[in-house]
Simulated scan of single mutants.
Amino acid sequence: MKSNATPFVLLPPRLTVVFTLARLLQRMELSAAPIDARQYRSVATRLAEELGAVPADEPLAAILQAHPAAAELYENLYYAHAGLCRTPLELAAEAEADTLALLARASRAA
């Protein structure tokens, strides 16, 4: 029988702030209530700083797996070097094709 349980990964103390900010950003993303733009930007900026200072290892991957908003931010931070590194290949290819089509339409309209 296949389990849907999230695997347990011991969180190193160095990732406590990353985990806390990732969780907060995810809650903000899912909130039905309006979120203050300055507060959102503050959390995202702080998380980006933290993500830039930690190694890409298994515990970080577990945090990003559990928090899609943080994973998207991480991917955007490293896009220049790794492309859509956390996005499944099919979705990444689809996004690239959509972008090319949009750019072609924009250039024809200009």
Rank of each mutant, 00 (worst) to 15 (best):
M28E: 09
L24T: 10
P55M: 01
R38Y: 07
F19M: 07
H81S: 13
L10W: 10
L11V: 00
L51W: 01
G83Y: 02
A62P: 01
P88Y: 01
E29A: 11
L89A: 14
A32H: 14
A101H: 11
V18W: 04
A104L: 09
K2P: 15
L100G: 03
T20G: 08
L64P: 03
E49S: 10
I35C: 08
E94C: 01
L102W: 09
H81M: 08
E29V: 06
V17K: 13
R46S: 15
A37P: 15
R46D: 13
L73F: 10
A62C: 05
H81L: 14
T87G: 01
V43R: 04
A62M: 03
R14C: 01
L91M: 12
L11S: 02
S31T: 07
A44N: 07
E94P: 03
A44H: 11
L102K: 10
A101Y: 07
A5S: 13
D57C: 05
P34G: 03
C85Y: 13
L89Y: 05
D36Y: 05
A92T: 00
L84I: 01
R41T: 12
P13W: 06
H81A: 13
T6E: 13
A82S: 15
E96S: 07
A69E: 04
A32E: 15
R86Q: 08
A110V: 12
A32C: 12
D36R: 09
P34S: 06
M1P: 08
S3F: 11
Y40D: 11
A109F: 11
S107Y: 10
I35A: 07
A56I: 10
E75W: 00
P12I: 04
A22T: 02
R86D: 00
L47E: 02
R105I: 03
I35T: 12
F8T: 02
P59F: 13
L11Q: 03
L89S: 10
Y79W: 11
P88L: 00
Y74M: 06
I63P: 01
A22K: 00
D57W: 07
Y79V: 10
T16Y: 05
F19G: 03
V43D: 06
D57A: 02
L25Y: 05
L51E: 04
G83M: 03
P7A: 02
D36T: 06
A48C: 07
E72C: 03
L100Q: 14
M28W: 05
A80W: 12
D98T: 08
R105H: 11
A71Q: 05
A82G: 14
T20L: 11
A71I: 03
E50T: 04
L51V: 05
L15H: 00
F19P: 00
S42A: 11
A56Q: 14
I63Y: 05
Y78R: 15
P88A: 00
A92M: 02
R108W: 09
R38N: 14
T87W: 02
A44M: 09
L89E: 14
Y74E: 05
A62T: 01
R46N: 13
N76P: 03
E96P: 01
A62I: 01
A70R: 02
A62Y: 01
E58Y: 05
L30N: 12
P13H: 07
M28H: 07
L77V: 00
A53Q: 15
E72K: 06
V17A: 12
M28D: 06
P13I: 07
S3I: 11
T87M: 06
T99S: 11
R86G: 01
A69W: 00
E58Q: 08
L89V: 12
S107Q: 14
L100D: 11
A37N: 10
M1T: 10
L10N: 09
E72Y: 07
A53E: 15
